[in-house]
């Protein structure tokens, strides 16, 4: 891999659980993100997969400094984002943007598309007033919306169109890094494909580096170069997209892949499904050692001892954190 453009180093985001009305007492810690290290090359798309509560959204928000990390660093290009504060951070935000899940909540209902996009364009750049309408129009066309709709309010658009507006707003500041948090899961299937195509076209054209967060493995597989699988605040497996999807190594990834229902009646009726018992545990009191061990069909006593380190089998780019990795993947 070429020089990493985005480097995330041992990132931890812990939330104190407080009780009491006047004098708050910390009664516990939710370890939403618990020691994640990642690096992305420029222009790379990383898919981040995991179930609800695994910390994938928190990780995205921590990388973008919307939540302050408890520990660890995030470096984008030559700048360490975790060291920035106040004004510096605000001006640095031009480089990294977020696309949100719910296009109904991510647009201010009382602003027209024009004022929303014009505001975004002007945050970090000086644009003469006369040129603004042209810039907004160009931005709208880039995401596949007709410029003549710019005086409309968000509620006059459909879900897919709203998501396009949200994407346009994120692109307005000309970012280098985009974190897309479940950008298609609130949309209908036929609209999902449109947005996925748009995102992959844009990343290619603008050389965007992107982290694509989703719970849907098949969507992630389609758009990403690499996939990272998260479970309870940690990454358990990472590797090239097709390889992770087709030959998963970690027991959790295996179960996840087998649980995804395929729209193919024959294979759906014949294939063997790994059914995991129970629900994902709460990050408030995570199990000891490998946090997956209570649900893992292959767990042994040593799984409870310590968090396993990453290992590779054939391909160095494909890593998984499981003590029994070699024996389970013979």
């Amino acid at each position: 891999m070429s020089d990493p453009y985005l480097q995330i180093n041992n990132l931890k985001t812990h939330f104190p659980v407080e009780k009491g009305i006047l004098f708050r007492k910390v009664t516990g810690t939710v370890k939403a993100v618990d020691g994640v290290s990642l690096s992305l090359a420029k222009g790379e798309v990383l898919g981040l997969v995991g179930e609800s509560g695994c910390g994938k959204s928190t990780l995205g928000r921590t990388v973008l400094q919307l939540i302050k990390p408890t520990e660890g660093t995030v470096t984008l290009g030559s700048r360490t984002l975790t060291d920035l504060d106040g004004k510096e951070l605000r001006s640095a935000r031009a480089d990294f943007q977020m696309i949100f899940q719910d296009p109904y909540a991510s647009l201010n209902p009382r602003m027209t598309v024009y004022s929303m996009l014009a505001e975004a364009i002007q945050v970090h750049r000086k644009v003469p007033k006369a040129d603004l309408a042209g810039a907004v129009g160009a931005l709208m066309e880039k995401v596949g919306l007709a410029a003549r709709f710019m005086r409309k309010y968000p509620h006059e658009f459909s879900g897919g169109q709203r998501q396009r507006i949200a994407i346009a707003r994120a692109l307005a500041v000309e970012p280098k890094l985009i974190i897309a948090d479940e950008p298609v899961s609130a949309l209908d299937v036929s609209i999902q494909a449109q947005i996925l195509n748009l995102l992959s076209d844009l990343t290619r054209e603008m050389e965007l580096t992107m982290i694509f967060i989703s719970h849907d493995l098949s969507v992630v597989k389609h758009i990403s170069d690499r996939i990272a699988v998260m479970y309870l605040g940690r990454i358990v497996e990472i590797g090239p997209a097709t390889e992770v999807f087709e030959h998963p190594q970690h027991p959790y990834t295996k179960a996840l892949c087998s649980a995804v229902p395929m729209p193919d009646p024959d294979s759906e009726r014949t294939r063997k499904r790994i059914l995991l018992p129970g629900d994902p545990p709460s990050p408030l009191n995570p199990p000891s050692g490998c946090t997956f061990h209570p649900r893992c069909p292959h767990a042994e006593e040593r799984c409870q001892a310590a968090w396993p380190s990453f290992e590779s089998l054939k391909n160095d780019a494909h890593q998984a954190a499981c003590v029994r990795l070699a024996e389970l993947n013979q």
């Binding site: 977020m98 949100f100 719910d102 201010n108």
Partner: peptide, 24 residues
Amino acid sequence: EFIEACISLGLPTRRILFRHMVPN
């Protein structure tokens, strides 16, 4: 999320409060 989007855009707090919050 649209308030988060404002923060993420780097808008000054005063603008977020009075341009995005109050009208809503």
